[in-house]
Amino acid sequence: MLNTPSTSFLRKGWTQIGQSTSILVDTTRGMGRKPPKQGKPPILPPSKKVLYHVVHPKWEKPENVKELLWRRFTYNNAIASIRQLYIQESISRAATGQGLEAMKEEEAKELNLLIIANNERNLQKAKEREVQKMEKWKETRQEVLWEIQSTVDAQAETAARSELEVRTVINRSSDFVSKENLEKKILEALETPKVYDFAIDKAGAKLESPTPVKYQEGTPTVQKTRLYDQTFADRV
């Protein structure tokens, strides 16, 4: 293909040298190259730093500048005279007793009056507080007395109740077992044994099982289960 004399087929950047060879002359230098680091070759000037933001005010229009000039002059003159006016005003006020000194004196007087009034009010309040305190103290005293009274009453009631209880117990204690009547009581119990191991039916009849005996003969029956319904007794 390269043997053909026409060069129209060559890619851009390629040059035909001989009949059969072609080389790349235009290099692709610069493609994919990063900018070199600062201070490294090739040396580049350092990038610009923005240290602060400078405000550039808009220029006034020339006609405005012209007008501002005379306006400023008149304004400044007016201000100067107004200053004088204020000074005179303050002087005249001081002369007529409305100045700063007079105001200060007045304020001091007012402050004294206020302090006196405040003291009076404080004394009045202290008196009221004293009266209130006394009333409160009396109330508390009454309450405490009532409480004492109620406690004493309750104690007396309890004592009466306890006394009654003790008295009934003492009355009952004639039947109690003591060292003296121990033998007698034992014999009495043996003579009249009391068995509380029984059931009752709907009518209230006692159903004892096994039937209690006065003197146990032989080995006592070992109870296995209780037969509550005695009507089943025959079947068992």
Binding site: E67, L68, R72, Y75, A78, I79, I82
Partner: peptide, 14 residues
């Protein structure tokens, strides 16, 4: 309290 400031005039007109 004071006369109108010159800048106020100019700004108002603008």
């Amino acid at each position: 309290l004071l006369p109108i400031h010159p800048k106020t005039y100019i700004r108002a007109r603008e």
